[in-house]
Design a protein around this nucleic acid. Structure first.
Lengths: 112, 112
DNA sequence: ATTAGTACTTTGCGTTGCAAGGTATTTGAA
DNA sequence: TTCAAATACCTTGCAACGCAAAGTACTAAT
């Protein structure tokens, strides 16, 4: 129930994940498995059961769109790409993220 | 259902709040209302219904302890203070937070 | 035909933040 | 004395989110 170290990381990931997805798709379109790899490379471990529903949510909110593309090795892939509305939201998230970073710094800096 | 800007901030707060509380109490003991004020001053808006259960959770996990103290103006206050276990957890959170900040930077930096 | 690999999806659970409403104590004015 | 305002703590019900686990489907190679 209490894995401490890993649980701490898991909790902090909440809310930042959506921001990561939009940031990744802002660079270039990608399908779920490739997004998973990029997150893993950036040290942000996420599992399928987390990512897929998130992509669907963001699509339903109009932040993403997708198209199917055949693959030479396996089933077709669902390539997601960010929409105009998604870019707008990403802009808000950039601001929100900077605010949170500043907030933590403020709280920490008052230490003597 | 979708307040965008405010909702974005609310989501990002998740998981970081516990970190903020421990950081604040690592400096000096405090009671709920004063913690609320410090969070507000640091631009991290939180409401009572969020903070009280959180303090109780952290106390039940052994991260915090408390003592009652009379007030000259109003009902007695519950002063919380961080425990040794709480300091340990705070150390882990410091690491986890730095990792997340680095992760976001990594993802963002690859942009051209 | 069967297995392995890749990719997408769903279900059920526990945790968390929040809105809203509630309880209790003290002080000061009517 | 009584009532309102201020301060402080607590609880309930809801919705959102991450995750473990299990499921579906397509392709290629054995």
């Amino acid at each position: 129930m209490e894995n401490s170290a890993e649980n701490v990381r898991s909790q902090m990931r909440k809310g930042v994940l959506e921001y990561c997805i939009l940031s990744i798709l802002d660079k270039k379109e990608a399908y779920a498995s490739s997004i998973l790899e990029e997150l893993k490379a950036a040290n942000m471990i996420v599992v399928e059961g987390t990512l897929y529903p998130l992509l669907i949510r963001q699509k339903n909110q109009g932040l993403l769109s997708y198209r199917w593309e055949e693959s030479t090795q396996g089933p077709p892939r669902k390539y997601y790409c960010i929409t105009e509305k998604g870019r707008q939201q990403l802009g808000e998230m950039d601001v929100a993220w900077q605010e949170i970073v500043d907030t933590i710094r403020t709280i920490k800096e008052q230490q003597i």
